[in-house]
Computed example of a mutant assay.
Amino acid sequence: MLKVTPTDVLSKHSISKNDTSTPASLKQKPSIPIVLTIAGSDSGGGAGIQADIKAISATGSYACSVITAITAQNTLGVSAIFPIPLEHVEKQLDAVFSDLNIVAVKVGMLADCDIIKVVAAKIKQYKPAFLVVDPVMVATSGDLLLKESAISTLKSELLPLADLITPNLPEGAALIGSDVPTNEDAMGDMICELRQLNVNAVLLKGGHLEQDENSNDLLIFQDHFQQLTAKRIHTHNTHGTGCTLSSAIASYLAQGHDLLQAVKLGKQYISNAIAHADELDIGSGHGPVNHFFAGHADV
């Protein structure tokens, strides 16, 4: 997939430098990069499309969306999943790509093989500059969100197109067919097999190692990896953390940051959102993170 920076991607509405009839004030008007999220809807508002739009907006980009499934969901769990008909998923994709200057795409919940294939085909057709895939398989509550039969399709059709995939430990284990690691040594043992997924980079998230003092992630490239460390924050309100992080990374990529810096900024953002999560009182189960912490707190 062709990779270009946001400054290389010109909107069809961009003003020519030679157009002297355009007022200077319009020529100098800054543009906000557009980020598309392709994911499922969370009726509880803490994860999925709703979390993605909040994170993209809070980190300074413009969010648009394509909904792949409707979940009946709250902080206690997922009670039903209704996949959007394929024709309508395709029409949503064509609608936003044909009109909006989308710089980065974040992909989340896709539910089944057919939707994965449609999304992959449209990514190949429209060639956005950046693609971040959060291989959503299991909700924070433990509910299965991706059919097991669809994992191979995800690996063959979509992951090779991505600049970055962001699995947590259970998702990473499912992608390579291993046991879920229970310590950092076992987490490190996953590196070689994750490199065989034919992806540009993998952010393996260590948040499930709850016994550790820090929350350590591994940013894995083909020839090296880097450990990213943050202080572990103890809270029951962690619903939507993966959606939020991957969306923030896509937002920062769209703004022109390189991959390493976008990941670091995304990790900083989600750490703050988790740190302020207990300021919210949402539901009786795993509450959401606080996406807009900066708007009403000293950070």
Rank of each mutant, 00 (worst) to 15 (best):
G295M: 14
A69M: 04
I191W: 02
G242C: 00
V119T: 12
L145I: 13
V35T: 13
V89T: 06
R232E: 02
D114E: 14
D99M: 06
D134S: 08
H13S: 11
I115R: 14
I233V: 14
S79R: 15
L203M: 09
K231G: 00
D223T: 12
C192V: 12
S61H: 04
R232G: 05
E171T: 14
N101R: 07
N168L: 11
D179G: 11
I32G: 01
P85A: 00
A250M: 07
G142H: 12
M1T: 14
A39G: 03
A111L: 05
V78E: 00
G46I: 10
V133W: 10
I165L: 00
F82H: 15
V263D: 00
P83E: 03
D185P: 03
T7W: 10
D19P: 05
Q226V: 15
A58Q: 15
K3V: 13
N290A: 04
Q211S: 11
G48D: 03
S11A: 06
N198D: 10
A120H: 12
S156K: 13
I116Y: 09
L280K: 07
S284N: 15
V133I: 14
V4S: 05
F221M: 13
G256Y: 08
K106P: 03
V96K: 07
A162P: 08
Y252A: 01
D94L: 00
M1D: 05
A294K: 12
L219Y: 09
I32A: 01
S215N: 10
G242S: 04
N214C: 07
A173V: 12
N214G: 00
G207D: 02
M190G: 03
F292T: 06
A47I: 11
R232C: 00
G60A: 04
D189K: 11
Y252R: 12
S247N: 12
A150Y: 01
A174W: 02
Y252N: 02
I165Q: 04
V299C: 03
L218T: 13
G295R: 10
F221I: 06
V289W: 02
D94I: 10
H13V: 10
Q226P: 04
A262Q: 06
L203F: 07
V199L: 01
I282G: 03
G283M: 03
M190L: 07
I81P: 03
S79L: 11
S41T: 15
G256W: 09
L144W: 10
G172C: 08
S156T: 15
S141V: 08
P23G: 02
K231D: 08
I220L: 09
A104D: 03
